[in-house]
Simulated scan of single mutants.
Amino acid sequence: MAERERSIHEMLKDTPSMNDSCGAVHTGTEGGSLGMGIGMGMGVSGSNSSHSIGTGNPLSMSTSLPLRNHSAPTTPMSPTNPHTTNGFLTSADGSSSLIRTSASKIDSLKNWSISTYKCTRQIMLEKLGKSQRTVDSELEAQIEQLRETQRKYLSILRLTRAFSSHFQHVVASQQSLADAFADLAQKNPELQKEFICNSETQRNLTKNGELLLNALNFFISSVNTLCNKTIDDTLLTIRQYETARIEFDAYRMDLENSKPELTQAASSLEETQRSFAHHKDQYEKLRGDVAVKMQFLDENRIKVMHKQLILLHNAIAAYFSGNAMALESTLKQFNIKLKSPNNITGSWLEQ
């Protein structure tokens, strides 16, 4: 026993120091420290088995401290989870609805791209004179006449607004002049009668001018509604009709060019015919809508302009002839509320 203990101490003395070792391999694994403990324990217990220090032995001694990984453990996504599929969270019907939505958007984009391409090609061919366009001579003449009428009415509207603005400055000047004459009548007794007479004249002109301004504003409001709302609504339908005409001609040309080539492709030919029939129905429907709208617009335009032209004529004639009673009766005839542009609007409590 003493000899065995002495051999162990001699073995430990012959072992090089861990601090002086330059060839120590710091593996950072826990297996090395485990191997060192097992090797030393087995050596002390006097086991007959020998364990050499080397990299080939999994229980070999290590001269490095164990390095532990303190990072948070990662939980792999289980494919058996009902809410995960290939790492993506999905619901029970989410994948199918997502696929349907994506397919619908792709189809819509595809149809829009094809239609836009065909319409652009049709427009370019029409401008180059290489394609025939569908022409409704009577309807297009009416459309052109309507656009010309709108341009002329807008010109009348612009001139009437300018006249109303200038005349409003005249009325404001007359009001200021009447106030100045009245003030001078108080300060000049020797000319009091003359100043008062001129002041009353300017006040009467101001009153009649305000009545004429009310008539002008009513005329401007009615013509503006006719030009920028009623006629614009019909022109919007006309623009839709023109777009439908271009689409109809584009698909008509596509059908004519596809017939000799698609003799054997029956499905493609049927699809082209179905698209052509759809755009033809849409074109004819919008053409009917345009004809009806233009008829009603023409009747409404004549009625509105007849009333407004009579109002404008009677009001201006009564004002410049000095017939105040005729001017007031004209405004009452057309139910125009008398509103002076020089009056200051009261507070909301007074209203």
Rank of each mutant, 00 (worst) to 15 (best):
S47R: 04
F296N: 14
Q174R: 08
S47P: 00
L226W: 02
K332H: 11
N198E: 05
N335H: 11
K293N: 13
L255S: 06
P341L: 12
E350A: 12
N323F: 02
T345D: 09
T27E: 04
P260S: 09
I238D: 06
L89Y: 02
H278Y: 03
S347Q: 04
S50W: 01
M61W: 04
T116K: 10
D249A: 12
S115N: 14
D179P: 05
K337Q: 13
L59A: 10
K303S: 15
N204I: 05
G87I: 01
L177S: 13
I302E: 12
L177R: 07
N314D: 12
M253S: 15
A277W: 00
G39Y: 00
K110N: 14
A215Y: 01
S95Y: 01
L311W: 04
S275C: 09
Y241F: 10
C227K: 00
S96I: 01
P66H: 08
N198M: 12
I38Y: 10
S45E: 11
A250H: 05
S268G: 15
A266H: 06
M253E: 13
L125V: 01
V44I: 15
F218Q: 11
N342F: 08
A172M: 09
V292I: 02
T234I: 14
A250Y: 00
N19T: 11
V170Y: 11
E242R: 07
L309I: 14
T149Q: 10
K105C: 10
A291S: 15
E10A: 15
